[in-house]
Write a protein that binds this DNA or RNA. Structure first.
Length: 312
DNA sequence: GCTCAGTCTTCACCGGCTTA
DNA sequence: TAAGCCGGTGAAGACTGAGC
């Protein structure tokens, strides 16, 4: 079986004759003339090698072949109408779609609470999932729709297939537990570089910007005593040890309320990096993706561009 | 069995679109 | 630009069942 000669109008012809049991009535229901209906029916008869309908009295009765194909043809028409030709716009108020983000764990702490509060009011039935993926897997996930939006610092997603929009800029600060003897009353450059550091570079891609900046300035490198893969672990260790950490400002925002962690300005000018949202060009015109991007832009643009260092 | 009304099929033609 | 294709229409003829 091939699709040569298949015209979906013929399926509508079939469905109308089946429904009305009359070529004339079917023609009227489709707004066509009776000969056109008859012509279409004959084409379908030739295609399916069956008379499909035979006249018995004043009724066109379906043949067994017509009865057999009635259900699949109806399914085809319904699928076309509902899933191909349906151009209704996306309505977040009624949608129960799952939105999938890719963020570093810093993003989860900083972006998600605000996203959830926003969703409670405008998209109450939506659910959310956050994935943490390597750059190559993220690229594929955005391309095939497994991830809707990547938010944060993703320098690898600058290829032609991806769109990006800057949400704001960020910089770096230092965090240490209250009373950390390496910090003292004010964090000086000497204290910063003498202190033992903890780093979570795997989780925080943006730290690459900080490292490159420090290298380019010719300054000495911080003494990293411990490297951990997760930002959450870093927080716990900073809170309970004399290690200090350099983290993006968003991370500092996220831990402002933590019991004994204090945020300090760096004792030298901090490099600045862009926080962006990234999406694949396949989904550039997708109503859901479009709504999501515009919402995130509205939600975070002012916040990221206007906020300063948290009070401490 | 004839007539009539309703319906279907076929034919001729028209107009729009594509292609050489 | 002309030819060919395709989907459409109107007209005419054929078919069928109901009524007499």
């Amino acid at each position: 079986m091939n699709l040569d000669g298949i015209d979906f109008q013929l399926f509508k012809t079939f469905e109308a004759v089946l429904r009305t049991r009359s070529v004339t009535a079917a023609a009227e229901s489709l707004g066509l003339s009776q000969p056109t209906m008859s012509y279409g029916l004959n084409k379908l008869r030739a295609l399916l090698h069956d008379p499909l309908f035979v006249r018995i009295g004043n009724e066109m009765r379906p043949t067994p072949r017509a009865q057999a194909v009635a259900v699949p043809i109806r399914l085809i028409l319904e699928t076309l109408e509902k899933e191909v030709l349906d151009t209704r716009t996306f309505d977040p108020a009624t949608s129960d779609r799952e939105i999938r983000f890719c963020m570093a764990d810093i993003g989860e702490m900083y972006f998600l609470p605000r996203i959830l509060r926003f969703a409670d009011t405008v998209a109450p039935n939506m659910t959310f999932r956050v994935l943490s993926l390597t750059p190559d897997r993220l690229e594929a996930a955005l391309a095939n729709g497994d991830v809707d939006l990547a938010m944060g610092y993703f320098p690898d997603l600058s290829k032609d297939n991806f769109f990006q929009q800057q949400l704001g800029t960020s910089s770096f600060v230092c965090i240490a537990r209250a009373g950390n003897p390496h910090v003292g009353k004010r964090l000086t450059a000497k204290r910063y570089f003498d202190a033992p550091h903890i780093a979570a570079h795997t989780a925080l891609r943006s730290m690459e910007v900080f490292d490159r900046s420090l290298l380019a300035s010719g300054a000495e490198q911080p003494r990293v005593k411990l490297r951990v893969p997760h930002f959450i672990a870093l927080l716990g260790i900073v809170a309970q040890s004399d290690l200090i950490a350099t983290v993006p400002l968003e991370a500092a925002h996220a831990v402002t309320h933590a019991s004994n962690i204090r945020v300090h300005r760096l004792p030298f000018p901090s490099p600045v990096f862009a926080l962006r949202q990234h999406w694949h060009r396949r989904y550039h015109h997708d109503p859901v993706n479009k709504w999501l991007r515009e919402s995130m832009q509205g939600l975070f643009h002012d916040l990221l561009s206007e906020r300063g260092l948290p009070s401490y």
